[in-house]
């Protein structure tokens, strides 16, 4: 039985991007790298945007990055699948590329969303075919043994 379709605007993969969306469904953030000039790039395409080589490979990224910039939207359109306030952010991945996302598992406030803070990917399944790559603050190693880990 299929899950209820999200009200969010669902992406429609194309042949050139299908591997990315297959990846998010499998819990992986997949990027591409040029086999000639080593450029890592996003969004997906079957050639290198730096040197136009068609020799490119796909790999699974670390899913780690930093919060590069964002806004906090204060009003969502009705029936949009979003509830305000929510952040619309740009993440800089450790591998280099940037991507748009939402920061989740965090208060949606300027105090909680600090530029350059470490974030990690998490996936939200919207339908049988689509999972979105979202990001959440990455707990510092010391936090694991702290109050959150103990509760």
């Amino acid at each position: 039985m299929s899950e209820p379709r999200s009200k969010k605007p669902l992406p429609r993969p194309t042949p050139e991007t299908q591997h990315f969306w297959d990846g998010t469904l499998a819990g992986e953030l997949r990027l591409q790298r040029c086999e000639d000039c080593s450029k890592v790039y996003f969004p997906p395409r079957p050639f290198c945007p730096a040197c136009a080589s068609r020799s490119v490979e796909m790999f699974t990224a670390s899913g780690l990055g930093t919060l590069h910039s964002y806004v906090i939207n204060q009003r969502a359109m009705p029936d949009s699948g979003f509830e305000a306030p929510y952040s619309i952010a740009v993440i800089e991945l450790d591998e280099g590329p940037r991507m748009m996302t939402n920061i989740v598992d965090s208060p949606q406030t300027p105090e909680a969303l600090v530029l350059d803070m470490p974030v990690e990917v998490t996936f939200e399944k919207l339908s049988d075919d689509i999972a979105l790559p979202l990001f959440r603050p990455k707990a510092a190693p010391s936090d694991a043994a702290g109050p959150r880990g103990a509760s």
């Binding site: 992406p11 429609r12 910039s69 806004v71 939207n73």
Partner: peptide, 26 residues
Amino acid sequence: AASLSGQFEAPFGPMGAPTMFTIPVL
């Protein structure tokens, strides 16, 4: 939905220019 912005921006809820054009400013 199959455009690059339809796949890699729209799903994250930008609702028109006030929530997109402004993202670089912080």
